[in-house]
Design a protein around this nucleic acid. Sequence first.
DNA 1: CAACCATTTTGTCCTGGACAAATGAACACA
DNA 2: TGTGTTCATTTGTCCAGGACAAAATGGTTG
Lengths: 306, 306
Amino acid sequence: MNTEDLSLNIAAVERETGLSKDVLRKWESRYGFPLPLRDGHGERLYPVEQVARLRLIKRLMDSGMRPSRLVGRPTEELLALGPRPVLTTPASPGRETIDETLDLLRKHDPKALQRQLSRLLQQQGLRRFVQDSIAPITKEVGESWARGQLEIHEEHLYSEVVQGLLRGALDPLNDPDGRPRLLLSTLPGEAHSLGLLMVASVLALDGAHCISLGAQTPMDDLCKAAGAHDVDAVVLSFSAAFARRRIPPALAELSARLPEGVEIWAGGAGTARLSSQAQVVRLLPTLEAAEEALGHWRIAHPLPGN
Amino acid sequence: MNTEDLSLNIAAVERETGLSKDVLRKWESRYGFPLPLRDGHGERLYPVEQVARLRLIKRLMDSGMRPSRLVGRPTEELLALGPRPVLTTPASPGRETIDETLDLLRKHDPKALQRQLSRLLQQQGLRRFVQDSIAPITKEVGESWARGQLEIHEEHLYSEVVQGLLRGALDPLNDPDGRPRLLLSTLPGEAHSLGLLMVASVLALDGAHCISLGAQTPMDDLCKAAGAHDVDAVVLSFSAAFARRRIPPALAELSARLPEGVEIWAGGAGTARLSSQAQVVRLLPTLEAAEEALGHWRIAHPLPGN
DNA sequence: CAACCATTTTGTCCTGGACAAATGAACACA
DNA sequence: TGTGTTCATTTGTCCAGGACAAAATGGTTG
C-alpha cells in the first residue's frame, strides 16, 4: 500500500505532466528514464519523485531545451537550469500578492481572481500592471505547475482570466485613429497568446491602434485582414516552444503575401536567438523593444499634416 | 488537397472528440467504424463526416449509452437518440440568450460571460436562474460541443465561470445556523460538480446550511468533515458517466463509515435508474426532489424549541 | 424484487518497430 | 563574416495486434 499511495499509473502521469504515454515509454527505452515500477500485471507504476522530475523536464522543454540534455540529469541540476526571464523586468509584485493569486486559482474562483487582478490593474495602471504584475505572476504560475502545486487546468484558467482582463483594458483605450495601425496574432501552431496581449497593451498605451485577432490565425486570413483593416504592420508573437526552424520561412511567406508596404514585427521568446532577417521583419524580443519600434516607425512615417 | 482539407489525423480526432487513439483504433478493428482513409505513409485520415459522427457518439455515451448500440448507426438515428432532460424543467431562457452566451464562450471572454450570467441571475433570482437558465444553457453547451460548434476547452471555461457565479451567490445566502446542515461533494472519479452546485443553491435558498467541498473528495476526508462540521446529511452527486455499478457499494461503505445519524442524499442523473436502497440513502433525481427531501427532513426533525 | 455470478463488452496497456518532423552540424557560397 | 543548404541525428507519433482488467448485461436464485 506504500507504493500504491506514492505511485501513479501511466495515464495519471500523462495527465500530470503533459507527456504522452508514447513519449513516456520511448524515453524509458531510449534514456532509461523514467524507470517505473511494475504492478502485478506488468503495468507501469511511476513513483512521485520520478513524476516530479518529469514535470520539471517538461517545463524546461517548453522553454526551448531539448530532452537529451535534460532526461539524464538529477533533479538538482534541473532546478539550477530554471528559465531565465525574457520578457520580464522582475520588479516583483511581492511574494504575498503572488501567493494570494495562486490561492484563488486553486480555489477555482475566476470571479475572485478577476477582482484581485482588476484591483492590481487599477492600482498600478496598465503599463506597470503588465510588466510588474502579469509578467512575474505568469512566470510563477508556470513554475508552480512544474512543482506540482498547480494543475494544468488551473494554468489555463489563469491564462483565460488574464486575457479577458487585458482585452477589457485594451478595448476602451484603443484609439481608432491611432497610428500606426497594427494587426496582432500568432501563426498556426503557436497557441500562446498572452505575450501578444502584453505587447498589445504596451503599444496601445503609446497610441497605436491595435487589432487583435487572437491566436493561430491562418496566413490567408491574416493577409486578408491586413488589407481590410489597412494596417501598417502585422505583429506576431512566437514562444520558445515554437519550432524555431519554421519561423524564417513562415515570415518570408507572409512577407511575400502581405499587401505592399505592410511591415512585419515579430516578438516573443522564440525570436530571441533568431538571425536578423533585417530587411524583412523588425524583432521585438522585449516590451521595451516594442516601444522602441513604435518610436522608430513614427520617425520614419511623420504625419502628413505636420 | 481536397482530402487534406476535409480530414484529420488521429491526434486531431482525439482532441476533437475526446476519444483516445487506442479507442479509435479498437473501434475500427471491432466495429468497422470509424473507417478512416490512409495517407501516403499508411497513417489514418478521418474525414470530417466521421469525426462529426464520433462526436455525437461520445456525447451519447457520456449520457450513459453504450458503444455497441451507437457505433453501428447512421448519423440521423444518433441525432434522434438525443439526451432527454433529467434535472431540467426546460422553461427555456429563449434561443437568443443561449446564443449570446455561447458567442461569449467562443470569444474566450470570461469577463463578459460573467457579466451576462450575472445579469440573468439578478433578473431571475437564484432559484429560477438555476432551473430556467443554467440548466438549459448547460445542456445547450454540451450539445453544441457534440455538433463541433464549441471546443472542449470552452466547455470547461463555461463550467468554471458558472461555478464561480453560483458559489458567489451561495456564499452570502448561506445561513450558518440553518438546518439541516449539509455537506456537499462528489466521490473520487466523479468530476462533474455543476449539478451539485445547482442542488446546493436550491437547498441553501430553502434555509439549509450548505458546506460545499468541491468535487472528488476522498471518502476519508468526507467522513472527517462530516464529523467536524456536525452535519445532518452528506449530499452526493453522480453524473450519468459515473460507473453505475460502483454507486451502491460506495454508498454502503460511506454509510458504514459516516458518524451515527448522518444521512446520505444522492442526486444527479446517475442515480435515476438506481434501485431504491431505501433505508440507506435518499435519492434526489431532480431539483424538486431535493426540495422535497428537505421538507421531509424538517418534518422528521422538528426544532427542539417548538 | 434484490443480490449474486457467468459472460460479454469495452477501454487501457503492452511490445517493438517504422518513420516523419525537428534539430544541429558541416559545408558551400556571397 | 554571415547566410543558406544538405545530411545525419534526435525525437515524437503512429502502427499492429495481443493481453487483460473493469464494467455492464443477463440470467438465476433466494
